[in-house]
Design a protein around this nucleic acid. Structure first.
Lengths: 346, 346
DNA sequence: ACATGAGGCTAGAACGTTTTACAATCGACG
DNA sequence: CGTCGATTGTAAAACGTTCTAGCCTCATGT
């Protein structure tokens, strides 16, 4: 029996209710609500008052069912990846001022990318922003055929039409990490890789070329890893049994590095005294003082800004049939953040 | 020029397209797509084939514009709270088998609860599941007047109609933590509280009564804190200057505890040798071996399951005008998880 | 032979918006 | 004094579904 809403029955108030109360047509109410021109200041105020009175809120679904534009950007992200949640925060910040909404769809245990993307598509998102997508390139190409797609942090053949890539120069990042370690005096530097994860191939390559460049070819050691703490832990266990043990490790990402730190800690291997550890991403995780991880920083706000920018550019271009948007790929530079998990070898 | 879609122009295929191709009415296609009864096996197959041919996917917006039920549960969560992301994972797992969809709306820097809830409402969610909402009770009551609301982890006057509460027995949790510390031999136990955060009052009270019960009334010390690492760090700095310094600290939650650990670490105060630290939530964070925090565990999958269950119960009850759902509040027991940040005092 | 009922299907009206096309009013200008 | 162009407003047709009512057809029971 809550009388907070102005309509008698339980229904949510609609345009028609507002129109009736203000004594105008629904079309006019629509004009006022959209802040379009075509209404006098006086009626505008009268309509707004009526809307306030009965607690009217436009129905987003109906609205975008009618108007072709939904101004909705679908975002797929990994719930448990700090790097992704940081990115999402940036995406909100970039999209809302530009007049676009974000629709979130999480990838989690029991909910794969396929499912995540499907729900976004069903919601009629105009473009898809995929954070570190793992789907096969063919699948992404297929998607890009239906709707503009921005892949963040995953490199892809730039020739796929309708597909934009925004990413950090992963190879360069790995190189920076190796340079830093070499500068500290390390020679035996291992890399725990990310397997087939987005960016893994580039980081692997960056590591390899940097090692070669420093004349450390024979010390190249790549341990299979992954992108979770568990993957890092497994790799670290393998590594700590190796002889000679490397004096430094570059992990695929911060989560992986955290797993590495854990294992070393429990085995009594001191970081950074016995071994140095470098992560990748500079997510929230790395900044926790208890972890305080030296890591390769990605410029997260920038990545988010660019991703939204590319998606929107694509949309507005499609609208005007303007073909001058063929950028395809934006690569931005990483920068090393030195914290306390790296030091000269003993 | 991508011919992947079966319709000539760029349009997304609709019911009508499928109907035309299969040579039936749109109503029948609708019946088939919804797996409703009223179509023969033969035509059913023919329609499905046509749908596949042209790559038809139902339009979620149009669908729920028409059908009164949207089967959509709106979830408000804090992007940066591991406890929340863990919960969201559980919510997906609970909702999808029940035939409900989850719509996510994040609270983040620059995007408050008000905004988060508004977008959910605009999307015509049938019910709202709010994770640790901080909004004033009056606001929540107002919301609950419009739509069933489930508050997770935030206690509220159970008398508010349309509002369900699912939470952990926070007071009991705090008591368990204090009991554990007392058992280890601690007497001087401080509490860094959560201020006005959800659950903070109960945890404060639980701490206080437990201390009293153990005859440690004069050692009660409550330091103002909050729910982020920064809040914990500030409190820890204050605490480490105090004389006598407490031998144990119960922090408001895991994030706060992490901040505490950081500061102690940097000040050269050893945990658990010089001081024991207990967190709250048992989120991902606490389990990171580098942190390995003794904490009060909340049964996250259970909380999620119950939250979805209550929301759905409410909806189905409203539907049948059945008034037997007045549960209002579900409180579930916490359990202490002992890890490596607690030990007997020196 | 005739009602009865069930299965299979369709026409057409919703749902709550936006959009298009057009009508009325009014001041100004020739 | 008629005509023009703004301005302010409206009626009605979309948008892509679901839902209600009802129409066939055919088998069944009497």
């Amino acid at each position: 029996m809550s009388a907070s809403s102005g309509v008698p029955d339980g229904r949510r108030p609609t345009l028609a209710d507002v129109a009736a109360r203000a004594g105008v047509s629904t079309a006019l109410v629509s004009i006022v609500m959209r802040e379009a021109k075509g209404a006098s200041a006086a009626t505008r105020e009268r309509v707004l008052q009526a809307a306030r009175d009965i607690g009217y809120r436009p129905d987003a679904r109906a609205r975008l069912l009618r108007s072709q534009r939904s101004r909705l950007l679908g975002v797929q992200f990994g719930l448990q990846h700090p790097f992704h949640t940081d990115l999402v925060e940036g995406l909100y910040a970039a999209a809302e001022p530009a007049g676009y909404q974000i629709a979130l769809s999480a990838v989690a245990a029991g909910r794969g990318e396929q499912r995540a993307v499907e729900t976004l598509l069903d919601d009629r998102c105009e473009a898809l922003i995929l954070l570190g997508p793992q789907a096969p390139a063919a699948r992404l190409a297929e998607l890009a055929g239906q709707v503009p797609v921005v892949s963040v942090a995953r490199r892809l053949r730039p020739s796929i039409p309708g597909l934009e890539v925004v990413r950090t120069a992963d190879d360069k990042g790995a190189r920076q990490a190796v340079d830093h370690l070499v500068e500290l005096g390390h020679r035996d530097i291992a890399h725990i890789d990310g397997g087939r994860a987005p960016g893994a191939a580039d980081r692997r390559r960056g590591y390899r070329t940097a090692m070669n460049r420093h004349g450390l070819a024979e010390h190249i050691r790549i341990v299979p890893g992954g992108l979770t703490e568990e993957d890092g832990a497994d790799a670290a266990r393998a590594l700590s049994a190796d002889r000679p043990r490397p004096t430094a490790v570059l992990a695929f990402n911060d989560r992986c590095a955290t797993g590495v730190l854990d294992v070393f800690l429990r085995c009594g291997i001191a970081v950074p005294d016995d071994i140095s550890v470098v992560g990748f991403d500079d997510s929230h995780l790395a900044r926790l003082a208890h972890i305080d991880l030296t890591t390769v920083g990605q410029d997260i706000p920038r990545l988010a800004q660019l991703a939204v920018g590319r998606a929107i550019a694509r949309l507005e271009a499609d609208e005007t049939a303007d073909e001058t948007v063929a950028v395809g790929e934006q690569v931005i530079a990483p920068h090393l953040v030195v914290r306390s998990t790296t030091a000269p070898p003993r």
